[in-house]
């Protein structure tokens, strides 16, 4: 039986449709920028929690545990602490998880992590002592059995967090992804946040395919701040389908010369497009929320949710 330790999970278990955001700290010790983004998300009053990324794309950045803690302390926004297996063996994972629990972090997202060869320190030794699924297993044992993966007891109270994992609706064939999700759910994944989806049909097919799995699914969306960002996904992120109509419309807007007008139209179009998107996926019972990855574009998040929830 899943216990709710975090507000995120409480909301989900209460049957509320949840929204999560994403925060990306950089290779720096100054967290003020990411804190200000977090404040923007918090001020919307609609974002229940936000992910704090851990060396995304294997680009070395400040510890996501430290960033998560600081953000939660400074802004009061609940965090989903991302943790990858690329850089830590099981000892380090256990240490960080205990630390996270001690610092009051209540959501952890388990990731296998991009290969270190992809990042800015490609000569690094990739660890992968565990993979993402095994990390879910480890967390489940810590939380529900009070033991680490080798069966050693954790002294005192058990760590309390809700266990998240990643999923990718774009994966072809979808059968492979579903089998993987079943595997992760079997060892204790309680909620899934998905890779970016632009095409609503991809999201709907995915939600149908996973409806037998007892876990909460949060569909990932990425309202692009500019035409360039959307084009990047279309051209350089393999596997992610960006509908041609969406791209065309963004391109038209990007050709508006007046800067203020252009910005306004971008925001409007994003809100319009994703309003339709969210309204459609929300009808699927397996969809428990939306994960909005508006990195560097937090101002669109509030109005978008207002539009959906106000309607």
């Amino acid at each position: 039986m899943v216990q709710a330790f975090s507000n995120l999970m409480k909301n989900i278990l209460d049957g509320k449709f949840v929204y999560t955001g994403e925060l990306e700290p950089h290779k720096a010790i100054d967290l003020s920028e990411v804190i200000s983004w977090a404040k923007t998300l918090k001020e919307t009053g609609r974002i229940v929690a936000a992910n704090v990324t851990d060396n995304p794309k294997s680009l070395g950045a400040i510890s996501s545990l430290v960033a998560s803690y600081v953000i939660q302390r400074e802004t009061g926004l609940e965090v989903i602490y991302q943790l990858r297996c690329s850089d830590r063996n099981r000892l380090a994972l256990v240490s960080d998880l205990l630390g996270a629990a001690a610092l009051g972090i209540r959501n952890v997202l388990a990731l296998t992590g991009d290969h270190t060869r992809q990042g800015d320190m490609p000569t690094a030794m990739p660890v992968y002592d565990l993979d993402g699924t095994q990390l879910v297993d480890l967390m489940h044992r810590m939380v529900y059995e009070g033991r680490d993966i080798d069966g050693n007891e954790i002294h005192g109270p058990r760590p309390q967090f809700n266990i998240g994992a990643a999923a990718n609706p774009n994966f072809k064939p979808l059968e492979v992804e579903v089998l993987k999700i079943e595997r992760k759910a079997e060892v204790g994944a309680e909620f899934f946040q998905t890779q970016v989806v632009f095409d609503v049909n991809v999201a709907l097919d995915f939600l149908d395919a996973v409806r037998h799995i007892d876990a909460a699914f949060l569909i990932g969306i990425f309202p692009p701040r500019s035409y360039g960002q959307a084009e990047y996904f279309a051209k350089h992120v393999p596997g992610v389908q960006v509908p041609a109509e969406f791209l065309d419309n963004l391109k038209k807007i990007s050709e508006i010369s007046d800067k203020k007008e252009r910005r306004k139209r971008f925001d409007e179009y994003n809100i319009e497009y994703f309003f339709d998107f969210i309204r459609a996926v929300k009808k699927k019972p397996s969809c428990k929320g939306i994960h909005i990855m508006a990195v560097g574009y937090p101002e669109v998040v509030g109005p978008l949710i207002e539009r959906v929830e106000g309607a």
């Binding site: 990731l111 595997r183 393999p238």
Partner: peptide
Amino acid sequence: CPKGILNGPCGGCVDGKCEVP
């Protein structure tokens, strides 16, 4: 598998190809 994982494929598998060059 460059990651040597036991519960793959990981998210780096796109169109059946590995993300690592």
